[in-house]
Design a binder for these strands. Structure first.
Length: 293
DNA sequence: CCGCGGGCCTGAGAGC
DNA sequence: TGCTCTCAGGCCCGCG
């Protein structure tokens, strides 16, 4: 499911019910997700206040008053849901507590406010890990991540430098979280389409030209910014698993220009091409061979 | 450094 | 209905 826009959508949904709130209790309903829960996982959460709910790449990061940080990754099928709001703040929005007992609800957060938040993950590729704030820099899930694509630290020069010398395809480079952090298969396809760049192009062709980033790099950065911002505004893309924390679907899938649109007419004005699909690095690439060069 | 295959899991959809 | 097969938004490993 989740690439940067979906994770950001989840973060924005969790923030009002978790940030500034104390965790009363936590249930783990199995011993593992992708990895076994750490020893005393629950004990390090209960009683703590969530000072901030942040995001880095596809990771949610809940900063705790203890100085620990709870890292949460949605894997392929993970989702969070606010199943009950704080009693005092939204008395009209009671949700029956049975909604906290759907299949694959693996972790349940009971906030001191009365709010209940569940983490559901059928495939269990997701994970949670508690790391002391002072050890974040050494944390393997964070170390080596490239720039945040929507931050000031990401621009055409940075992207070009990240692609320099890479013999792999441009698509593979964009999926490499060390080059830019947070893109996945959908948004890479969509950004390449919007930039009119071929997924097959060698990544190094975006490299600096006599010290300045190429127009291609500029176009691609613009396209990445545009598609991520539009997707966040739409609450992410729901192909199967992604839900907002309210349970609503995201709706950016209706705005896909190439992803999952094999055999459709290319939406580029004046282009007579047809959207094609092929396998690249073991994953489906959707593109228009006529206008992506 | 790179591509590839396999693995981790479950569920949805297609075809028979 | 039900079986079998393929595929899925992520990511890691080992191999050649």
């Amino acid at each position: 499911m989740p690439e940067l826009p979906e994770v950001e959508t989840v973060r924005r949904g969790l923030q009002p019910v978790m940030e500034g709130q104390r965790i009363a209790s936590v249930e783990t309903r199995r011993h593992n997700l992708r990895f076994p829960f750490q020893k005393d996982f629950v004990g390090r959460l209960e009683g703590q206040t969530i000072v901030g709910m942040g995001r880095r790449a596809k990771l949610l990061m809940a900063e705790l008053s203890s100085g620990d940080v709870l890292l949460m990754h949605l894997g392929m099928s993970g989702s969070f849901r606010v199943v009950k709001h704080a009693a005092a703040t939204s008395p009209g929005h009671f949700h029956h507590e049975r909604s906290a007992d759907r299949a694959h609800d693996h972790v349940v957060f009971h906030m001191a406010s009365g709010a209940i938040v569940t983490f559901n993950d059928p495939r269990r590729f997701g994970y949670m890990k508690i790391v002391p704030h002072s050890e974040l820099e050494a944390e393997s899930f964070l170390r080596g991540l490239g720039p945040e694509p929507l931050s000031n630290s990401f621009d055409a020069a940075v992207l070009a430098a990240g692609c320099a010398g890479k013999k792999t395809s441009l698509k593979a480079a964009l999926l490499d979280q060390r080059v830019v952090a947070g893109l996945g298969n959908i948004y890479v396809c969509e950004a390449l389409f919007r930039a009119h760049l071929s997924p097959k192009r060698q990544a190094s062709t975006l490299a600096l030209r006599s010290g300045a980033p190429s127009d291609h790099a500029r176009r691609l950065v613009d396209a990445i910014h545009t598609v991520l911002n539009l997707a966040i505004e739409a609450g992410g893309s729901s192909l199967r698993d992604h839900r907002q924390t309210t349970g609503e679907l995201g709706y950016f899938q209706h705005s896909f220009r190439v992803y999952d649109r094999e055999d459709e007419k290319c939406p580029t004005k004046g282009c007579k091409g047809t959207i094609k699909r092929f396998t690249q690095n073991g994953r489906s690439t959707f593109w228009c061979p006529t206008c992506q060069k």
